[in-house]
């Protein structure tokens, strides 16, 4: 029997549940933005969304395609110049949660969004850093969301764009990075957290219908499994309905062409 929700939906719902009401969240485009807006429309109506384009406390009714869609500015409490977002808001320690994605992650939660293959002769040139390196350092904590395959969960990054726990066992703390680093990694299979001693990611819960072997084979290293492995509660009917409505509104809005003046 197939589940009445997709792994993507489960991943978004699981990520949304991590955000609490009133929390100040620095949001990236795509899945983080979907999760944050789902949280705002369900259990966390006073969640503060900050987008790196300079919009403080945006309340979009559809998900933005870009980080700077007009909807984000029009629904914001304030829109400020971009250098201020990074200096006065992120660097100054005013962000509770930074939400990051990546193309590759390693066992210590370090992230690559720059290149696959050698930097100077890349097999695939990815978009690059954006706000991520400083979000990874300054947000009090980061949550990472990405799909889990042996190609994304790799033993060694091709390029380290954003620091997680570096080599683990306290290495991050010695750099003076003020944020706690990646506290949760959410994938389409389950949830991982850093082990308290080594800071190596450990599978702490699986989604319903997912086996531990499935998670292991989608990981490019020998994944540690928590002693008490939990199962994430499936999406509630409300969560699913609100998420699907949000996506439907978003699809319709993005497909709507701007009428040209001629």
């Amino acid at each position: 029997m197939t589940a009445p929700w997709t792994p993507d939906e489960m991943m978004t719902v699981a990520a949304a549940r991590l955000l609490w009401d009133g929390c100040v969240c620095f949001v990236g485009i795509g899945l983080p933005s979907a999760a944050a807006n789902l949280a705002r429309q369900t259990h966390a109506p006073d969640l503060v969304l900050i987008y790196e384009s300079g919009t403080l406390e945006s309340r979009p009714s559809v998900l933005p395609l870009s980080i700077g869609d007009g909807e984000l500015a029009a629904t914001a409490t304030s829109v400020i110049p971009l250098p201020e977002i990074f200096s006065y808001w992120l660097q100054s320690g005013r962000i509770d949660v930074g939400f990051l994605g990546a193309a590759q992650i390693d066992r210590f939660g370090n992230l690559n969004s720059t290149t696959i293959g050698d930097y100077h002769h890349p097999r695939t040139r990815l978009p690059g850093a954006g706000g991520a390196p400083e979000i990874a350092v300054h947000a009090r904590r980061t949550f990472v969301v990405l799909k889990q395959t042996a190609r994304t969960f790799v033993p060694k990054l091709d390029f380290c764009t954003s620091a997680g726990f570096l080599t683990g066992s306290g290495a991050r703390a010695t750099t003076g990075a003020p944020g706690l680093g990646p506290q949760v990694v959410i994938t389409d299979l389950g949830v991982m957290k850093p082990a308290p001693d080594t800071e190596e990611l450990e599978l702490v819960s699986r989604f319903e219908g997912v086996t531990t072997d499935q998670v292991r084979s989608a990981t490019g290293w020998d994944l540690r499994i928590a002693e008490r492995l939990e199962t994430v509660a499936p999406p509630t009917p409300d969560e699913l309905r609100i998420l699907r409505d949000l996506h439907a509104r978003t699809r319709a809005a993005h497909a709507r062409r701007v009428e040209l003046p001629c």
Binding site: F86, P133, E134, V137, C160
Partner: peptide, 13 residues
């Protein structure tokens, strides 16, 4: 100046 680029490979390239 910024408190930035910590732990990234960007400075190497």
């Amino acid at each position: 100046m910024l408190r930035g680029y910590l732990g990234t490979d960007l400075a190497q390239v």
